[in-house]
Amino acid sequence: MELGGPATVPDLLAQIGAPSNGVAIAVNGEIISRSRWSETRVGDGDIVEVITAMQGG
């Protein structure tokens, strides 16, 4: 999806309306630990996975 320019992980979560708790992020195949979210920038061409807790087993 298109974002408004390069963003940090917390910016990205806010833009897509995702919660910040109970979420894991991977950028280009690498899980980014929470402590590195604000220093990690995502931009054009990056593949971002946003994983969250859902109802299950």
């Binding site: 309306g17 708790n21 109970g22 979420v23 946003v50 994983i51 969250t52 807790a53 859902m54 109802q55």
Partner: peptide, 17 residues
């Protein structure tokens, strides 16, 4: 809970929270 992709535009309330 299970872990699945967040779908933008879906119910954004956090089950975990």
């Amino acid at each position: 809970v299970a872990l699945r992709r967040f779908r933008p535009g879906s119910n954004s309330s956090s089950l975990y929270q």
